[in-house]
Write a protein that binds this DNA or RNA. Structure first.
Lengths: 197, 197
DNA sequence: GTCTATAGACGGATAGAC
DNA sequence: GTCTATCCGTCTATAGAC
């Protein structure tokens, strides 16, 4: 019926423009470097070197901009996931993917957004579910046969993702108590598994 | 030298008043129920049934109020920790303490605050370190002797805390993929350990 | 100790000229 | 498409009367 997103009755807006992309780039940078509280129209525009009001020509609301960022972040995460699986040590590569500081910082901010901004929650949850399912499927395939059968892969993925995320976000605060010991367990487990395969 | 907190040269402020406590109570409720973005002077005062400006009679800044909440939350957490250790199954009780939804929600919000508000970071990190150290010490004591020697206890605490926190915060979003399987691993591990002890 | 009033910054968003 | 100007809400915090 309508050619636009069906919720904006009468303002202007454009789709695959380069300027639009610059806003998304800037928003992602602000989110990664400064976090959700600083993700304002003015800050994003300043980082993009563009006028604040121009942002509202490309995005109906700030939530629309954030949704675009969410989709972009998820696409890049899936691409990196494929790369990790293609390498010689996919399980270790998956661990390192989940331990990437900037990726983990973005994931933390997105979770925080999902908690507090209901209009965006569904999209963040959807993309998290998609990524979770792919990780579980991959680990199920990669795990030695006698482990993959039951739900061990799913449990292991949960533990690894939770641990990686907490280590990264705590380290950013200067809190590292217990990190070395936890990383030792991960390393030992990964070594044992690669011997078994 | 000064009898006040040594940073406020000239405004009024009072210490162990009941009204002050009401503000701290209200702030903690807002933080738990609505999260950091809603933790404003107006929201806190409204929840306390008091005037907004009165808050600034008891707290020099909003950061001072948040610091009071941080200390309060940490005190209660330590009290619950002692209770958990006093019971018949301390390891399982520790797991459940870390899995408490409202406690985990507060912990998540506090971490988020620590990331974004430098003036408060130090206090949050300090209390997290205190709690972490106590948990590691307790688990080291409780674990069968052949495990406690190296850093296993610290690694296990890290894994348990990270997993519990992620499960709780994801569940609040309606994201539960993999939770059942992860909880099964925890339950099995706790059962094995209590057999060994 | 508690009130009214208000300053001053910043937020999202819109109108309309060019 | 991009600009200037602007509305209106909310925020932290202060001044000063009672």
């Amino acid at each position: 019926m309508d050619n636009d997103t069906a919720q904006a009755p009468r303002r202007l807006g454009l789709e695959s423009s380069q300027t639009r992309t610059r806003f998304i780039d800037a928003a992602e940078e602000v989110l990664r470097d400064e976090g959700m509280p600083e993700l304002t129209a003015r800050q994003v525009a300043a980082r993009a070197g563009l006028k604040t009001q121009l942002l509202y020509y490309y995005f109906r609301t700030m939530d629309d901009l954030i949704l675009a960022v969410v989709r972009r972040v998820n696409e890049r995460r899936l691409a990196r996931f494929d790369e990790a699986l293609a390498g010689p040590e996919p399980l270790r590569a998956l661990w390192e993917l989940n331990s990437d500081p900037s990726g983990a910082a973005l994931a933390s901010e997105l979770t925080s957004i999902a908690i507090h901004r209901e209009p965006i929650r569904a999209e963040i949850v959807r993309s998290a579910q998609e990524f979770r399912a792919m990780q579980i499927a991959a680990v199920t395939r990669l795990l030695p046969a006698r482990f993959g059968g039951d739900g061990s892969a799913a449990g292991i993925v949960m533990i690894a993702v939770a641990l990686a995320r907490m280590i990264v976000s705590e380290a950013a605060l200067g809190l590292t108590d217990g990190h070395r010991e936890a990383l030792a367990i991960v390393d030992k487990t990964l070594s044992n598994l690669s011997d078994l395969i």
